[in-house]
Amino acid sequence: MSDQKLHLVIGGRVSDPQHLEFTDLKAMDFVGVFPDYASAEEAWRSAARRTIDDAEMKYVVVHLHRLLQPDMLKR
Rank of each mutant, 00 (worst) to 15 (best):
K5C: 00
D29A: 05
G32H: 05
R50C: 09
V33T: 06
V62W: 01
R49P: 05
K58Y: 02
G32R: 04
I52H: 12
K26H: 11
D54R: 11
L68W: 09
K26F: 11
H7D: 07
L20G: 10
P70Q: 05
M57V: 13
H7K: 00
G12A: 08
P17Y: 02
A38G: 08
D54W: 10
S46C: 10
F34Q: 01
V62K: 01
R13H: 15
I10E: 08
Q69H: 14
R49Q: 15
A40Y: 05
Q69M: 11
M28L: 15
D36M: 12
D71Q: 11
K74N: 11
Y59D: 03
V62G: 01
M72K: 14
G12T: 03
Q69I: 08
A47F: 02
G11L: 04
T23R: 06
T23C: 09
F30V: 15
D29G: 02
P35K: 05
A43D: 07
L64G: 02
P35Q: 05
P35H: 05
V9E: 01
M28G: 08
A48V: 12
K74W: 14
I52W: 14
H19T: 15
G32L: 06
F30P: 00
E56T: 13
E21P: 04
D3V: 03
P35M: 07
A27E: 07
D29L: 04
A38N: 12
D29F: 01
P70Y: 02
Q4M: 15
D36T: 11
W44Y: 15
S39K: 15
L8G: 05
L67M: 11
D36G: 06
D29I: 03
T51N: 15
V62L: 01
H65N: 10
G12K: 02
V62I: 04
A27M: 06
A27R: 12
R66F: 06
L68Y: 13
D54C: 12
L6P: 00
V33K: 02
D16V: 03
R49H: 14
V31P: 02
V31R: 00
G11T: 04
K26I: 09
V62R: 01
D36H: 11
G32C: 08
D29M: 03
F22K: 05
M1N: 00
P17G: 01
K74E: 13
L25K: 13
D24Q: 15
T51H: 08
F22D: 04
D36L: 06
E21R: 14
R75A: 10
S46F: 08
K5W: 04
D24C: 07
G12Q: 06
F22I: 14
L20A: 08
R66A: 08
V61K: 03
I10S: 00
K5H: 07
K5Y: 00
H63F: 11
H63L: 09
V62Y: 00
V14A: 04
D3C: 08
